[in-house]
Nucleic acid binder design. Structure first.
Lengths: 194, 194, 194, 194
DNA sequence: GATGAATGAGCTTTCATTCAT
DNA sequence: GATGAATGAAAGCTCATTCAT
């Protein structure tokens, strides 16, 4: 069970994103996802352990690379300030690129509990580590305040970005999210700069 | 229906906070809340329209005064910067003072359906207005950057405070939250200061 | 939960006997039992933990007194042989008196597994104890063979009675079961008699 | 369909016995039997009509010869009493020789639905005929009571043997079942003897 | 003949809400 | 006003069976 291959696996995950984005987390029944995916209810269980496994897999597949993509992309940047800019930009870009996914991850999936929330947190943990490294690098380079509290700074970055994105989603993704990257980056930088 | 009076109204809300904090949002059945409140299941419906109304009312009662208290207290402060400090401090103080409530508002109620969360957000609208006024005042006084984007700044303040509090709750309220007020305020101020 | 009182409790058990006797164990859905009992599906769960609890309770209520009734009735008999006659007769009488129940206990309930079968066995254990005492008494009184193996004799009595009843049920209770008590008793007595 | 040939037919039946003995009737899914037999799920249906047909065939194959073996072996015995002894002994021997099969026929298959159990009973009909003949022969030879009721005597023999074997299986086949043949035979003979 | 991926009907249990007392 | 017994809709998951390859 749970053999993660074949086109059906992806079909089902894509269907889940669409159904959750359209009908909401609590109205995303297995049968609705199956119908949207064009498979029988039982087929779901050939590819996923249970309903929660669909959601966890969705998150892993869709967000698993989220942080890694940012990490790889900022590696070539020279200063912590420039890395932060790229990170903010990519954060917004990735979510703006798939608005259904943004709805699902910013609003709907947060209604889940148990294992899924843990999974979400564990993926975000990598994000926090990345931010930590970035902040430390900035401090060591004398770019950022030497007495900056990493934990608070991290919470400021993540809290700000999350809040900006969530507001954008709640405003039905009507405006350009990426356009906020620069001003947000400027604000954060002013806060951190030595 | 929905007659908001009598001691039972408050009994039920207090019971709901305790039950949700203890058992979690998804295990907070109406019957459990009724039992904790010492009333019959049916009595709940003499004071509330339905289960969602309990949660909305809980939020209104508990957080409604939250913003007002802050507003009144900062009225006497002279500068926007000082007002911001007080706001941050009071935000943390009020949540640290009632940790059950903090668990409920920061973690549990966010598992509720999207509709409820929209109503929760509308309650926070007053908070956003307060922050708006504060930011504008700072800009007019030349204390804050004149080209500060109020929306982004607001999201930075709210996002940061929310993230700081949520992390504190997830760490089981083990450390002193109010102690973070000063450093958080310093960070925010650096970002906004002209 | 599982408050065993009120007329509904018995209504549901009686309905379960009728439904199982008529439709068989595997076609006795909770909803069918509820309908037959004239209550809503959910009402079942005010009186019983779960479906299995209905069946266990059915067995306890209906068969719990089975052995005790026999024990009380044979207490006044003088010889082991007479006690055996009464036991056989009452065994048959009690099952003939409620033919639906006989169908349920002889055929349908044996299709169950897990806890219910353990319960059935534990109730039968009392029967085995009663037979043991009866056999020992007969041996001590010199009426039964002194070298009679209690275990085998017990298995002969129980196996014979059970087989006779099961055959009667499978023949749709068409003939008089109690009429077999005397000849069965005579056969058993010949086997045991000193 | 249901072409009963090829080595796979037997493979599947043997697999079914092992799976049912190990996992129990309710955990013996077709896919589990197929896996144990080393064939694909679909292959099962080239050899059997449906799942019930596997179980009936299992019973026919395994128990069909059961009675014939006894019949052939007792043909050479002279008296009904001696024939009965041999029958009892062989009944026990055959089941003790294949304990998995004993578990399946004495315990697990009895959890099957009533319909399957009726078919199982029809397979035992030959056994009943054999016992009938044996009893009649004993009566005609003046060895058994002339007024012995064949039906009851048959039920006593079958019920006793079945109960003895079932108890042995439930005690996990720990003791020597065949050792009970003699004392059981002695008991039965005393009951029937003229 | 053999495969095994796909099917989809079917059922127990929970819990917000009602309403007769 | 207060009660709490009764309601009944709703949904995740299993598994015997099929059929295209």
């Amino acid at each position: 069970m749970g053999k993660k291959k074949g086109p059906k696996y992806n079909q089902i995950i894509e269907a889940a994103v669409r159904v959750i984005a359209k009908h909401g987390y609590h109205q995303a029944q297995v049968s609705k996802i199956a119908k949207e995916a064009g498979v029988a209810d039982g087929t779901i269980y050939l590819y996923f352990e249970n309903k929660e496994d669909i959601l966890i897999s969705l998150f892993e597949e869709k967000m698993g690379s989220f942080v890694e993509t940012i990490r790889e992309r900022i590696a070539s940047e020279k200063s912590a300030a420039e890395k932060l800019l790229i990170a903010v930009k990519m954060h917004f870009e990735q979510l703006q690129a798939d608005q259904n996914l943004a709805i699902v991850t910013q609003l709907e999936l947060r209604q889940s509990n148990t294992e899924l929330r843990l999974k979400i947190n564990s993926i975000f943990k990598n994000y926090l580590i990345l931010l930590d490294e970035l902040l430390t690098e900035g401090k060591e380079a004398g770019q950022f305040l030497s007495d900056l509290d990493n934990r608070l700074a991290r919470q400021m970055v993540f809290g700000t970005l999350d809040e900006v994105v969530t507001n954008w989603v709640m405003k039905e993704c009507k405006y350009d999210l990426v356009a906020s990257a620069d001003p947000v980056h400027r604000l954060l930088l002013r806060a951190f700069r030595a």
